[in-house]
């Protein structure tokens, strides 16, 4: 079974994010990057399917700057077989649509039975690339899955999706695109042997022309969404400590809730 996993390299979830003074983006200095945690669930699931079936191939693909190759190497160290890196200045600044389009084009050139992504990237939280890619590839999709079972004949899969207050169970014909939610599995750590072996694995490089795309179709030029400005959320006002006897404090509190907070 050939499985493709889409990865995005994102700032470490523990990193402190600062918006650039001009609002054009975020300060990248001093930030460490990791594989998007939801994409790690997707990768772990792909590796487990391969291990369960005893055969198969897991290809990891990412669109990102040269640094994003680290994410592919980490995935190869965890056990993926091959990497594909879409890296070119022309890809920069793309929205979910432009990214999905480039990824879909790269995937069209590969054999696959299943495509897995994270449900969303934790940097922009758009949750668009997986579904958009499925549309562009003309494939069925199921998003936010917490369980995945491949049918014995490998022609269909049963997935559990998290929906409001319940779990939805769907049968989907393959190939299909599934996006992973927390709870699907617990991702492994790359073993030291895996890390040593990762450098011997192949990473194919692509730019827009090798994908048959014009520079106008990718990156910022090919995007439907333009980011005008980023601004940090307003900082929380400091709390107010009331003083005096409990009775006084209570009446002050009621007054404040009514007049300042305007919630009662």
């Amino acid at each position: 079974m050939k499985i493709i996993v889409c990865l995005k390299q994102v700032p470490d979830t523990a990193a402190t994010i600062k918006v650039k003074p001009d609002g054009s983006g975020v300060e990248t200095e001093g930030i460490t990057y990791v594989i998007n945690p939801y994409d790690e669930f997707a990768l772990e699931e792909a590796l487990r399917i391969k291990e369960r079936l005893g055969e198969g191939e897991v290809t990891v693909i990412t669109l990102g700057p040269p640094k994003a190759k680290e994410a592919l190497r980490t995935a190869l160290a965890m056990g993926a077989d091959k990497g594909v890196h879409l890296s070119d200045p022309a890809f920069e600044g793309g929205d979910s649509y432009a990214t999905a389009k480039a990824l879909a084009r790269a995937i069209q050139g590969l054999p696959y039975d299943l495509i897995l992504c994270g449900k969303q990237a934790v940097d922009d939280d758009a949750a668009q690339v997986g579904p958009a890619m499925a549309e562009l590839l003309g494939l069925p999709q199921a998003c936010v899955i917490t369980k995945l079972e491949i049918d014995a004949n490998r022609k269909k899969a049963v997935v559990h999706r998290q929906i409001e207050g319940a779990s939805e169970i769907m049968e989907v014909s393959l190939p299909a695109v599934f996006t992973a939610q927390k709870g699907l599995n617990e991702p492994r750590y790359p073993s030291l042997k895996g890390i040593m072996g990762a450098k011997k694995k192949e990473i194919a490089e692509h730019n827009p022309s090798s994908l048959g795309l014009s520079p106008e179709e990718v990156g910022l030029a090919g995007s439907k969404v333009k980011i005008l400005k980023l601004s940090p959320p307003p900082s929380r006002a400091t709390g107010k400590i009331l003083e005096g006897e409990p009775r006084e404090q209570a009446s002050q509190l009621v007054k404040l809730l009514r007049e300042e907070a305007k919630i009662i």
């Binding site: 680290e70 980490t74 890390i195």
Partner: peptide, 14 residues
């Protein structure tokens, strides 16, 4: 090196 950084990160994460 890239491998050494990944070794370090794996150990740190663990």
């Amino acid at each position: 090196t890239e491998e050494q950084l990944l070794f370090q990160k794996t150990a740190r994460d663990f």
